[in-house]
């Protein structure tokens, strides 16, 4: 459909990562990855746990600096930006953290108003209107006076979403938005991601390992493993992909190229106590 190669030429990409390497200590998290996130589309970044998906969001947000390579956001190379330029760029980004990251000492209303109060000099009446609009969009206008501790998991994620879109960002990045949600609130979040993308024309990046949910809304999918992109394409292409590692992940098979067993010596020998510790 939309996700064919033609829509991903240079003019259209909102974030473009080129041959990026990132190490944490001795361990290479990313080993020369390149990807394009097209403007106005929903791009899913998938992969098994521990492949650095969240790290990728932090790299795009400029909180981490890659050891090599470039991360272009709207043509600006994030790792090379100075402090104030980075803060200017961040105003165009919204991030929804896995935990929601609502400020625990503020009400829902103040949480959503926070980026507006900090980054703009709008009068309080205008801020009120914007906050109520954003809360209405996520269905929490009635919960504005609650404290984060009084919200359920799904509600606090929605409140955090309202805060993430408070400044009308151009791009929004979701970190595991579906993890740990009950089926109803999962459905709510899936619908919200889709409708925000459609109504506001937001570029959306969804980091997840929930294959089913994201396949239903994503325009384009990247699958990561071992610090590399091992597959990319539209959801249809990915489901049809016969590469062993990709199909194992997409079908959710317990064993395959990614082994079920942690590397261990031969089971039979182990039982015989060949190297037992006395």
């Amino acid at each position: 459909m939309q996700g064919n190669k033609a829509t991903r030429d240079e003019g259209d990409s909102h974030v473009r990562i080129e041959d990026m390497h990132f190490h944490r200590g001795e361990r290479a998290i990313f080993n020369g990855i390149s990807l394009d996130i097209p403007r106005g589309k929903i791009t899913a970044i998938m992969g098994p746990s521990g492949t650095g998906k969240t790290t990728l969001l932090r790299l795009i947000g400029g909180q981490l600096i890659p050891s090599a390579g470039a991360i272009h956001f709207d043509g600006e190379n994030i790792p090379e930006l100075g402090r104030s330029a980075l803060y200017r760029v961040r105003r165009k980004m919204g991030v929804l953290f896995q935990s929601g990251a609502l400020f625990t000492d503020m009400s829902v209303y103040d949480n959503v108003a926070f980026p507006l109060r900090e980054n703009t000099s709008l009068p309080e009446a205008v801020i009120r209107n914007i906050v109520l609009m954003k809360l209405e969009a996520v269905g929490l206008r009635g919960a504005r006076n609650l404290m984060p501790a009084e919200l359920s998991g799904g509600m606090s994620r929605r409140a955090a979403l309202a805060r993430a879109i408070a400044l009308d960002p151009e791009i929004i990045m979701y970190d595991e938005p579906f993890a740990g949600q009950d089926p109803i609130s999962m459905g709510v979040v899936v619908r919200l991601v889709k409708s925000l993308n459609e109504t506001l024309g937001l570029t959306s990046v969804v980091v997840t390992h929930d294959v089913q949910e994201v396949s239903s809304i994503a325009d384009y999918i990247y699958v990561f493993a071992g610090g590399k992109v091992i597959g990319q394409g539209t959801p249809e292409q990915m489901r049809a992909d016969q590469t062993p590692r990709v199909s194992q992940f997409m079908q959710g098979l317990p064993d395959g190229p990614v082994p079920f067993h942690y590397p261990a010596p031969d089971f039979e020998q182990d039982l015989m106590g060949a190297d037992s510790h006395e």
Partner: peptide, 12 residues
Amino acid sequence: TEQLAGMELMAV
């Protein structure tokens, strides 16, 4: 709880 990281990404 990622509140500090969230703040940073909200340009604060």
